[in-house]
Design a protein around this nucleic acid. Structure first.
Lengths: 234, 234
DNA sequence: CGACGTATAATTGTATACAATTTGATGCTC
DNA sequence: GAGCATCAAATTGTATACAATTATACGTCG
């Protein structure tokens, strides 16, 4: 449970950052969760100096929202932000997948196939956390193949923000829907078919965005919408 | 004379960050310049806590390189990094300029024209720092018009890194060469000509990349000299 | 004179102390 | 009991103290 008790050495800033980032990717940390510095200090057994560095990095990644004098919370992207995230991903991954289709080696394809098959297994088993993480891994792996570091870094942030968007705008009951987009992508990329790779990616991202209920904010997200009727009837 | 003693209020972290970032954009801070924490503390009159936050943000922007236990220096991008920067910019700005051409209002065009004309004036006057900053402003303004915040943020970083690349790989004597790329871009965007806008942007970035060559970067002045003006003016 | 090793200074990394601010509770007034 | 002011506790923001590491100066030895 508490990892550092098993370890003799203190966890480093980078390791703690990875743990929190992964928890966000796997939706074990959900939007609006408060991240109290003291609590994180206790959990990881380090001083606030380290925790504050981690929180600063996460807030620059836009996965944590920093409210002056009021602490940090897991980001809860608004509908218009989510649309920008997907618009950015469409542009980025259009270029990435095109380059990947040009550069992909058989070994690269094998890695992609492995990720996709494990992803299918987790979806089948209803293990949503792992499935979402692997889906992100798949997209990042494409960026690795394309080989552009600035683009990969932005995509890494956008993938995490996408995870938060899904947590917020997909009904919690509905698991990830199974589809063969990734498999078809692997096929097109392996053949070096740039045009088809781009087409599949574009449709894939758009389909993913459509599954989000961006127009119907649930819960306490948008109080104006929640109370629109009663206020209007008044 | 100690300039910061005249100031009534302490500079904030964000303001100091902007000052350093601007100094990089304007090439008053050149690649490989050592950023000693104590010196920056003295210059801005704050504690190391603040300076270290600033340096962390700058290093995540990839304009400062952080070497464990050995301090921070202004980044000096290697040739392969520079190629990735321009490749990323071509992809990003292709999408940005296309969207800008669709959305650009007459007021937007006026702002762009104003930036471009001031840019010409500075190039004519041989004021390279200001010309480079305005060139960056022009590209970022296009991103504002396109209206995608994640893309704008990455472009902001890439523009600064481009400034470092120019500082390193363009002979310091040769001023910015005058051309009408920005003017032609404004014309195409104003007419909503997406195809031509993209074409001009692509050629513009490629031409800019071609002007870079291997060269020995000159050393920069000490930090007090670099920030003398802004500190005194505050 | 140069190479090497040691001592010393300078710099960075981390933890902690203290100040400022916010949050929550208590009690007062009406 | 609702509304409001005030106080106490908790939390965050900043500065500083101390530890760890690196850079520099110096003296010795070859």
């Amino acid at each position: 449970m508490v990892a550092q008790l098993k370890r003799s050495k203190k966890p480093s800033e980078g390791w703690i950052y990875d743990q929190v980032f992964d928890a966000i990717l796997e939706q074990r940390l959900l939007p609006d969760t408060k991240l109290t510095e003291k609590d994180l200090c206790d959990v990881f057994g380090v001083s606030r100096t380290i925790i504050r560095k981690v929180l600063l990095r996460l807030s620059l990644d836009k996965v944590v929202k920093h409210r002056p004098n009021r602490g940090a919370v897991i980001a809860a992207p608004e509908p218009d932000e989510v649309r920008e995230i997907f618009e950015a991903r469409r542009l980025l991954e259009d270029g990435i997948v095109a380059e990947a289709a040009r550069k992909c080696t058989p070994e690269d394809a094998d890695v992609l196939t492995d990720i996709a098959s494990r992803e299918h297994a987790f979806i089948h088993a209803g293990e949503n956390s792992d499935a979402i993480r692997l889906s992100g891994d798949f997209h990042l792996r494409l960026a690795d193949i394309a080989g552009n570091r600035p683009l990969r870094e932005l995509l890494r942030q956008l993938v995490a923000q996408t995870s938060l968007a899904i947590a917020r705008y997909v009904p919690s009951g509905s698991g990830m829907c199974e589809n063969d987009d990734h498999d078809r992508l692997i096929a097109a990329i392996s053949e070096g078919d740039v045009r088809q790779s781009r087409d599949i990616m574009k449709r894939h991202l758009t389909a993913c965005e459509r599954r989000l209920m961006l127009d119907t904010p649930e819960g306490s997200k948008n109080l104006h919408a929640v109370f629109a009727d009663v206020v209007a009837a008044q």
